[in-house]
Design a protein around this nucleic acid. Structure first.
Lengths: 195, 195
DNA sequence: GTCTATATGAGGATAGAC
DNA sequence: GTCTATCCTCATATAGAC
């Protein structure tokens, strides 16, 4: 039988977050109960409230962590260079970052409507920063004459939808490596904005 | 005060579906209660069960209707011709069909995981038929030498993600007409597969 | 076809013992 | 830090009156 009492500090917190992420990705925020999460972690429901003040905060933490990681990772990846080189960097980075994070991507996209208004505003602001990074690249390339783009904002939204869509079909045991997928998508992106 | 009794047959059924669609799109299937739907329609909760055997069937009906309409509309739109012409047709059709159906798109995409396994299988089969229509065009264009495509299946998924993404940012009162949006996306699609 | 009332169960969150 | 027990609200679905 499972242990009924005792301290397991240091591991329960991360376990709660991991269980919540996986369950919410699979069944949706509203469909997942705190009891389900507790069972998955191996504690009773009351114990969860040592790690989150409420269910909403748990969702926000998951989405905020994801966006913060994304922005930090891109900050470290972004470089100077031609718009062309920067766009390739962005394309490959986006795929490489998101592919191993299917649950985070799913939750961050699907559960926006379940954030409280305040939390939604904060997450949207982070998302906007990321979109603007691509928008900057596109406008730079247009100014340099490397790209022909009808509308940089729409192209930004289009390319991000295209690239994020990888998560819809990618499987770890699929026939293509991440590198091959990056290449295929980079070909499409490159051609779609080409002069 | 609202009427407490009486027959309103002929209108309640569609109203139930319309209310369910709008509420589910906004808050998610699991988060929307039958009571909310009933309130929105203006009846008591028990009355809903004259129009659906249960909540799950209501969701399935919404998604099935959407996919059936989509396939029927594409059947009427599809034409013979060069792969190039067929791809433009598909691109413009996809945007024109989906733009005025934001709620349906959202629900059909987001609530797949809330379908029962049987219902999921049926909806997925319909979705696959639509994807295959694009896949056929791409492979035809490749065979004719009009397109250069690394992998038709991945390109199919990529283009559908790109095109469906329009629903993420489109607003009825935005600065662009549907025709202008079709044009911008067709430029991207055309170039992305160009030889 | 709709209403009211109810059966039956699950939900988020909290209090207090250990 | 976790457990048990509980409060209070809400859920889906059904039964039977009108």
């Amino acid at each position: 039988m499972a242990r009924k009492q005792g301290s397991h500090s240091g591991t329960t917190g991360p376990k709660v977050r991991a269980a919540a992420l996986r369950l919410i990705a699979r069944y949706g925020f509203a469909a997942v109960s705190m009891r389900q999460i507790a069972t998955d972690v191996g504690v009773q429901v009351g114990a969860l409230y040592n790690y989150t003040p409420d269910k909403q905060s748990l969702l926000y933490d998951l989405m905020h962590s994801h966006m913060a990681e994304l922005l930090t990772a891109w900050d470290q990846e972004a470089t100077a260079g031609t718009a062309f080189a920067r766009l390739e960097r962005f394309t490959r980075f986006h795929i490489r970052f998101h592919l191993p994070r299917a649950d985070q991507v799913f939750v961050s996209y699907m559960e926006l409507r379940n954030l409280s208004p305040d939390n939604f505003t904060k997450i949207e602001a982070m998302r906007r920063i990321y979109e603007d990074a691509l928008d900057d690249i596109l406008r730079a390339g247009e100014a340099e004459g490397q790209f022909i783009i009808a509308d940089s904002r729409i192209t930004t939204m289009g390319l991000i939808a295209l690239l994020t869509g990888v998560s819809n079909w990618y499987r770890d045991d699929g026939r293509l490596s991440v590198g091959e997928i990056e290449k295929i998508y980079w070909d499409m992106v490159r051609k779609s904005v080409s002069a």
